[in-house]
Design a protein around this nucleic acid. Structure first.
Length: 880
DNA sequence: CTACTCACG
DNA sequence: ACGTACGTGAGTAGT
């Protein structure tokens, strides 16, 4: 049996762990611990799987490397590590030391080189080698005995990709050592390896696959095709050779290493246990405890009740508890049971049956919520129909809290929260119940149900305190208490209210569309000479670009792009193309809107869509089942559909939308005096921008200038890039660059502000809104150029979009509260990001308008006014 | 289940 | 980890 060593790329795995695990994680001292936690999880997982005899972790040391000396632009790969991650490096080393794991470092060399050297030495010693890194560069080390393992986080779970030499060849089509030469040609922004200008990934791979080495490529450079590549190669020879040296991992660096010190001894030492305790890494603590044999882990016990006396007793005790967790279990409007947690040993599931009725349980749950102490739930909005409470002090939603702490997660379910905040691994709902309904699960697997529901209530209760502490530490407690929690009730009210839709009119609209669709279908088949599925981009691509030989603009992964912007640019005069575009428009309206909306019309003639609070990265809400935030408005025909959204008898719609809220927020947040002044002066912001940027009097701005200024304004809000602007305006990159330059010269404060966002984002790892909402931007420290660029745009956009979302949420809460407190019959029914729709009683219209204006204007005090446009109408079509 | 397309702010 | 504007959700095809 061969012996085995695991070699770990310390920084790279820490980095991965940092962004993979909940970012706000700290211990009571305020030390950030998430990366250490993630790192140790990966470490232990690898040790479990590989069962190695030896292990060593390599770290970079801050010192110039030979790469810096060769190439002054070389930046190294560990730049831009956020402070919260940086401080975890020594912490990790402490843990490793306590576990008796050898750390290898060498000034002047990167961890890559140490790993390269150690893997070569160990292979020579006859060991199997496993290299663990987040970096694909390591693939050049792969051999028959050296396996590269790359952990990837996908949707919260870590999967590990394994590469032996054969896997590299299979997946990349080159050998590990050839891979170096590919990189020498194409460059690698992740390592700041320049490569040969003009040679991209495809060409680089093709060349090396043909010639097998950089040297061989150059030996035959005169015969390389295409000519463009040949020219690039000839011009970039020095660069290629330099890049080759930069890209090649040093396998003979003078690092000190002793196999004996790498031998794995007792990992779960008392010293390590102490550190785990100090870092409050509870789930890991269990494993270290076992190693110390100090204590056995406790199985959690859950109790089942279906009798009245037992329930009474449980509720009595819960009424006294300082903090409880509740999970209602309901289906189709009927309460099937509830779980209740009010202590480590007091977790119950109460099933509705016999005298223990649903009504009884909801009544008790309501009393618990109103008892004046902390009550934590998951998805409070779902429970509100049963609880029948209004905004209540002390009632909290743990999912919403979790969302604020990290809005990038895909879900905020109990098992995720338990893992992140309690460091507890518990079975998920799907693990326990599968995808069946609660009702049938309660029949067939009661035990699993009890476990599932009890964990949910327990997690809500137990994580509550921690969540609140973290919100406090991150400065988000006011955001949570004053905006997100009250908003739950406003959203619930909107969902409950719904919007009336004229079913018959919708059907007629759909039929009209259908007639036109069928006419177009025939015409399209005639023009193209055959019948095919027009809805299939694949088939359509074949017809347009192969059969009819139209020039194709762009290719997607799977074929030709047939998107509207491409088709419009390509052949606006082609009748077939025009008809296809029209067909697309009509079928979209028919399937998504005419047919799509119809299925959501309820018994009451209204659509009760859902408004989701924990979906977006920026703090916006989202709308589903159906999406009522993307009802057509831009095109005339699509806009027609708004005629079927009508107020009920005796009511009228009042629609209020913020005018240019994001640009006004930009003016405020940047503090640019000219921009602030501009918005004080003019209603027409784009015109004003054009006037100032292009140096023309306000009244002489041409429509073209205004349009350009508008696009630039959009670009600024989206996180400006010359590429994006040039696409948006169909101009060259250089022209776009000039516009941007002129804009920043006009508003220097904006430039300073946006640069500051990127800088602070890089430093902190997240950006914030005016109200303290955070968005982590892990892409900012990515070594990949494209990803980092994306991160920079996100850092510029999120504070603006997010602040607008904050302000709208404040306004919504204000409007909803006032309509109710002033005893009006009018109700808020929709929010579309910068727009609110109220179904107003006809005799209340003036009051409603006043409320909307006051609450929206007054939602934030900015250095520029917040303008609100008001419209009324007897359908949503009319309110424009 | 993913890719593409397109509706909105 | 996308050959780029930011943020969403839904329907259809095709694996």
């Amino acid at each position: 049996m061969r012996e085995k060593i695991v070699l770990i790329d310390g920084h790279s795995i820490l980095n991965r762990a940092y962004y993979g695990v909940n970012m706000g994680m700290t211990n009571f001292e305020g030390l950030h611990t998430n990366a250490v936690y993630g790192f140790l999880n990966i470490l232990l997982k690898i040790i479990d799987e590989e069962q190695p005899q030896y292990i060593t972790v390599a770290f970079d040391v801050k010192a110039p490397t030979f790469r810096h000396e060769m190439y002054e632009a070389y930046k190294g790969t560990r730049k831009g590590m956020p402070e919260e991650l940086h401080e975890q490096v020594p912490l990790t080393k402490d843990v490793l030391k306590a576990m008796g794991i050898q750390v290898a470092e060498l000034p002047g060399y990167e961890a890559d080189d140490i790993l390269g050297t150690l893997s070569a030495r160990c292979e020579k010693e006859g060991l199997d080698v496993v290299v663990v890194s987040g970096d694909r560069d390591m693939l050049q080390l792969a051999s028959g005995r050296i396996k590269i393992r790359i952990p990837k986080t996908k949707g919260g779970t870590t999967a590990v990709e394994d590469y032996l030499e054969k896997d590299v060849m299979e997946k990349l089509g080159v050998t590990p050592s050839e891979f170096v030469d590919v990189k020498a040609l194409m460059g690698d922004s992740s390592d700041n390896i320049p490569g040969v200008p003009g040679i991209g990934e495809k060409t680089a791979f093709a060349l090396i696959q043909k010639y097998h080495s950089l040297e061989a490529v150059y030996a035959d450079v005169d015969n390389v095709k295409p000519a463009r590549a040949q020219k690039a190669l000839a011009a970039g020879r020095e660069m290629a050779e330099l890049s080759q040296t930069l890209a090649r991992i040093d396998r003979e660096c003078p690092v000190e290493f002793s196999l004996e010190q790498a031998r794995i001894g007792k990992l779960f030492t008392p010293e390590a246990y102490e550190i785990m305790k100090r870092l409050e890494l509870r789930s890991l603590l269990k494993r270290f405890e076992a190693g110390c044999q100090t204590q056995n882990s406790v199985e959690r016990t859950f109790l089942y009740l279906d009798d009245l006396e037992g329930a009474e007793l449980a509720f009595e005790k819960a009424m006294e508890a300082e903090r409880i967790g509740i999970q209602l279990v309901a289906e189709d409007g009927e309460l099937l049971g509830l779980s209740l947690a009010f202590g480590e040993e007091d977790v119950y599931f109460l099933e509705a049956s016999g005298f223990l009725t649903g009504e009884y349980l909801t009544g008790k749950a309501r009393q618990l919520c109103l008892r004046g102490k902390d009550t934590w739930m998951l998805d409070l909005k779902e429970a509100l129909p049963y609880l029948d409470i209004e905004e209540t002090e002390g009632v909290y939603d743990a999912g919403v809290a979790g969302y604020l702490l990290n809005p990038l997660k895909s879900a905020y379910v109990y098992d995720d929260l338990a893992r992140e905040y309690l460091e507890l691994t518990v079975p998920s709902r799907t693990d326990l119940l599968g995808k069946v309904s609660f009702r049938s699960a309660l029949q067939d697997k009661k035990e699993s149900c009890i476990t599932c529901f009890c964990y949910s209530a327990y997690t809500a209760m137990a994580s509550g305190e921690i969540l609140l502490r973290k919100l406090r530490e991150t400065g988000m407690e006011p955001l949570f208490r004053e905006i997100e929690m009250p908003l739950i009730y406003s959203l619930y009210h909107m969902e409950k209210e719904g919007i009336q839709v004229e079913k018959e009119a919708l059907r007629v609209y759909g039929e009209t569309l259908q007639v036109q669709i069928e006419r177009l279908e025939i015409e399209i088949y005639e023009l193209s000479g055959e019948t095919f599925n027009i809805n299939s981009p694949k088939q359509l691509g074949v017809i347009l670009f192969e059969k009819l030989k139209l020039p194709y603009g762009k290719k997607t992964k799977t074929g030709y792009s047939t998107s509207a912007d491409i088709l419009e640019k390509l052949a606006p005069e082609q009748p077939l193309v025009a008809k296809i575009l029209e067909y697309r428009q009509l079928t979209k309206l028919k399937s998504t809107y005419a047919d799509g909306l119809a299925v959501y019309i309820g018994e009451d003639g209204r659509i009760h869509g859902k408004f989701n609070q924990t979906i977006t990265a920026t703090g916006r809400i989202s709308s589903t089942e159906p999406n009522l935030q993307n009802i057509p408005v831009r095109m005339a025909l699509g806009r027609e559909i708004r005629k079927v959204f009508v107020p009920k008898e005796g009511y009228v719609f009042v629609d209020a939308d913020y005018s240019q809220i994001e640009l006004r927020i930009l003016a405020h947040m940047s503090g640019d005096s000219r921009l602030i002044e501009a918005y004080h002066q003019a209603e027409d912001i784009h015109r004003m921008t054009a006037s100032q940027v292009f140096h023309v009097p306000f009244d002489e701005v041409t429509p073209l200038q205004r349009g350009n200024a508008k696009a630039v304004n959009f670009g600024i809000v989206y996180g400006i890039s010359a590429f994006g602007l040039s696409e948006g305006l169909s101009i060259t990159r250089q022209e776009a660059l000039d516009y941007i330059k002129q804009y920043f010269e006009t508003y220097p404060g904006v430039k300073i502000f946006l640069d500051g966002l990127v800088d602070s984002g890089k430093e902190k790892g997240y950006v914030t809104t005016l109200f303290g909402r955070r968005r982590p931007v892990p892409e900012l420290s990515s070594s990949n150029f494209m990803q980092r660029n994306f991160g920079e745009r996100v850092a510029m956009n999120s504070p603006i979009q997010g602040t607008a979302a904050d302000i709208m949420k404040i306004a919504m809460i204000g409007v909803d509260r006032r309509l109710r407190r002033e005893k009006l019959r009018s109700r808020l029914i929709l929010q579309i990001h910068d727009e609110l729709l109220v179904e107003a009683a006809e005799d209340e219209v003036e009051q409603v308008k006043r409320i909307l204006k006051e609450e929206m204007d007054g939602a934030a005090e900015l250095s520029v006014p917040l303008e609100v446009d008001l419209n009324t109408g007897y359908s949503w079509f009319e309110t424009k």
